[in-house]
């Protein structure tokens, strides 16, 4: 089975920085997840984590005119989704966190993913990378 999986893939979409685009992003995640034969539970985890990263990015962007780049890359049996926004980075504000769900997004990403990294991009945007290791739950070869 594993031999039939694509050794490497690279997919990307660009969507508006709006919560209305979250469903489209989840469909993209699902398509990639199915392509690399992830189980449904791991696909759900990725949908939540990528969706949370995008929701954060929408807050950073602050307006619908901006766009989000979501890219999926499978390399060395590690599937990584990277969400890049072009908005100005805003540090978390305690006042805002009380009334939004922003305080929950990051813990969820960390709980559901094998690896989460944040990188400030040169243009002042933020890139969030969310990875799952495809071999994590696989039983050893017979």
């Amino acid at each position: 089975m594993t031999a039939s999986l694509p050794p490497e893939i690279h997919r990307a979409i660009k969507v508006g920085a709006s919560t209305a685009c979250l469903a489209e992003i989840r469909r993209f995640v699902e398509e990639v997840g199915v392509e690399v034969a992830l189980d449904l539970e791991r696909i759900f985890d990725l949908k939540v984590a990528v969706s949370e990263a995008c929701a954060n990015a929408v807050e950073h962007a602050g307006c619908d005119a901006m766009s989000l780049d979501v890219c999926a890359r499978l390399q060395a049996r590690r599937l990584t989704f990277t969400v890049t926004d072009t908005g100005l980075f805003r540090p978390p504000s305690p006042r805002w966190d009380r009334v939004s769900s922003r305080g929950l997004g990051l813990p969820l990403m960390v709980a559901l993913m094998d690896e989460v990294t944040f990188v400030r991009t040169p243009g002042g945007g933020t890139a969030v990378s969310l990875s799952v290791l495809l071999d994590r739950d696989m039983s050893p070869p017979a």
């Binding site: 939540v48 929950l104 969820l108």
Partner: peptide, 8 residues
């Protein structure tokens, strides 16, 4: 499906 918005 549910995300942190719904959980909140």
């Amino acid at each position: 499906y549910l995300d942190s918005g719904g959980i909140c």
